[in-house]
Simulated scan of single mutants.
Amino acid sequence: MAKLVGYANFKRSNPMTDRFDMRAFHHVEFLCGDAQTTAARWSYALGMPLVARSDLSTGNTRFASHVIGSGSIRFVFTAPTSSSDALDDAHPSVTTTPRAMREYVARHGLSAVAVAIHVEDAREAFERAVAGGAKPAMPPRTTPADGGCVVSEVLLHADGDALLRFVSGASADGATGFLPGYAPTGAALDETYGFVRLDHVVSNVAQLLPAVDYLIKAVGLHQFAEFTAEDVGTPFSGLNSMVLASNNESVLLPLNEPTTGSARKSQIQTYLEQHDGPGVQHIAIKTDDIFATAELCDELGILADRDDQGVLLQIFTKPIGDRATLFLEVIQRIGCDEGGAVEQKGGCGGFGKGNFHELFRAIEELETRAGINTAASPPRPSAGA
């Protein structure tokens, strides 16, 4: 089992242990109550145009799904428009029935239902992940047209309902806007605000080490970084965190757990309560010029940190929806580009202990003002204790 040793004692290495070929993040899908409205809000705020859709205008009477994008980023917003409990073969990438969508939104609110990874072979990825202990969610589904797109899914967390989705096939490269079953809008992906790709996707779980072991055994990810309450916490609350990475370190999946016995609830605990279980806490989107992206950088307070490989610049939004759960991060990594000859190395600049502490402190202050982090009773010990 993985073991926490703290930021100062952790030694980064890459044992190249992926169980199958993982290329990069492909998309993140969110379930919500109204896909068109939610997508329009995010499109306006992030400068990402609508690139594909599946709804009444395309003959889909079961659900509405709108895709916005910039660079290689694809955010998918889906809402049920029927109560059907059957899947639709015309949409292989949508593997949740409308009835299950309703139940998911009722439980979690606006939430990331699936983190999708572009893999060499989604069928092989599913088989090897399940053989490694992953809990299966959807066996491979294939669309013969458009290059034979294959989609499969396992649970992202063994005790949760979010999905780790595998996507492969010629039509999975986004050339037509998105996957089969979606109508492209023809919008240009000109990176209006400078967003180029997804950097990392962070989950909150009740117990860190079992969640880490689950993903390491199922997918083969390796430990990239870690932090404890002593590294990033405040005098009032804390967390433990591990960052997992693929061989090419382009797929970065950090996980956080709450620590206990403090004057206030850990913000990870308040997330678990607000979200009603484990799930995606925040998504980092990469820019090559955070100052141009944020513009009001002095007022917004861009955080800077570095490690032996490069510099890390970050800024975070407040919670996006009605619940104190999901938020976004804008990130720039400087260095590790080998003189600009090749694409920058994944994870360049690490994860910034100082930045992490400032984020934790800011969220703690927000939750204290909202009155949702009072430690009412002593919780059970954490997995990292």
Rank of each mutant, 00 (worst) to 15 (best):
I290P: 00
R323V: 03
L155N: 04
L208S: 10
N256C: 07
T95D: 15
L179Y: 09
Q267S: 13
K286N: 13
L359V: 04
A362Y: 09
R323I: 01
A134S: 10
L87F: 15
V243L: 12
S72R: 02
T259K: 06
T260R: 09
P381R: 08
G160Y: 03
A2H: 10
C336P: 04
G194Q: 01
M138Y: 05
I268P: 14
A187R: 06
V150R: 06
N240R: 05
N9W: 09
D231G: 03
G181F: 14
T260F: 14
S168W: 04
N373W: 10
V113K: 15
D308F: 15
V113S: 15
K265F: 15
L300Q: 04
F126K: 00
R99G: 09
V105Y: 10
R62F: 12
V219F: 11
T192M: 14
P139C: 03
I315V: 14
L303Y: 09
Q36A: 04
L87M: 09
S171W: 02
L4R: 06
S246V: 00
V280A: 07
C297L: 08
E299F: 13
E273D: 13
D337G: 15
S13N: 11
H118S: 10
A35Q: 04
A172M: 00
G69Y: 08
I290Y: 01
Y271Q: 02
N204R: 11
V150Y: 01
E343M: 11
A122T: 04
V150H: 00
A385V: 13
D298L: 10
G233K: 09
E273N: 11
M138N: 15
N256M: 06
S168A: 00
K11G: 07
